[in-house]
Design a protein around this nucleic acid. Structure first.
Length: 208
DNA sequence: AGCACGATTAACT
DNA sequence: GTTAATCGTGCTC
């Protein structure tokens, strides 16, 4: 797809994020993630998210309460929470709900369509279908790391932000348990707080 | 100071 | 299906 065919849309503002994590996670599907690097737009349409909300959610990092790592999740909504895991991976979240209540939406996959040549250079040897189909993969593709932890997504000069997309009907969305919570007790392990755009719908998104 | 584990990925068998 | 890579984080001693 030619870059010229991509239309910019209104940015998602703070009030979009200041809602329950489950609502934000669902509505982010179809929205556009944009990261400005060296004056160039990198990004794509969001196809998979997960919701994490509250200290009582034992799948959430904030089950440990306020710590140096979780500090930004207790801050105001509309900021990035970027954490490091497995000794080598960065994962991007968006802080949601209200200040002093820890909640975030994990970005698990995007359909990249801007800055493709830059993304390709970071994913040498990997088929394009797998460039950004995992939380750590998309962070690597867009060069997102701890430098973005706490970044305000709603600032006028933000280098990382979201743009509104077309609303997706429920028929194109699947809900399932969150990934990677194998040692987390029920019911949090099985709560269907993972949201995905169905495969065939992803193709439709790509076509526009 | 030491330890076990992790909101993952890629490369195996 | 299994497992190594690799180190920050939060917990225990």
């Amino acid at each position: 797809m030619a870059a010229a065919a991509i239309k910019t849309a209104p940015r998602l503002a703070r009030d979009f994020f200041a809602r329950p994590a489950l609502v934000v996670a669902r509505e982010l599907l179809g929205a556009r993630l944009v990261r400005i690097e060296d004056g160039q737009r990198l990004g794509g349409l969001i196809t998979e998210t997960e919701a994490y909300s509250g200290e009582e959610d034992l799948g959430c990092h904030c089950k440990a309460g306020r710590t140096p790592r979780t500090r930004v999740m207790y801050g105001p909504p509309g900021h990035a929470y970027v954490y490091f895991t497995y000794g080598m991976h960065w994962c991007l979240n968006f802080v949601v709900e209200v200040e002093d209540y820890p909640a975030a939406v994990l970005l698990r996959a995007i359909q990249a369509d801007e800055g493709i040549s830059v993304i390709a250079s970071r994913r040498v040897g990997v088929p394009s279908a797998h460039w950004t189909d995992g939380p750590a993969k998309l962070s690597r593709a867009l060069h997102l790391d701890k430098a973005f932890n706490g970044a305000d997504l709603c600032a006028p000069d933000a280098m990382l932000f979201l743009e509104a997309g077309a609303a997706l009907p429920d028929s194109l969305v699947s809900m399932s348990p969150r990934v990677g919570l194998n040692n987390v007790p029920e019911p949090w392990k099985s709560n269907p707080w993972r949201f995905r755009v169905l495969q065939n719908a992803t193709e439709a998104l790509r076509a526009g």
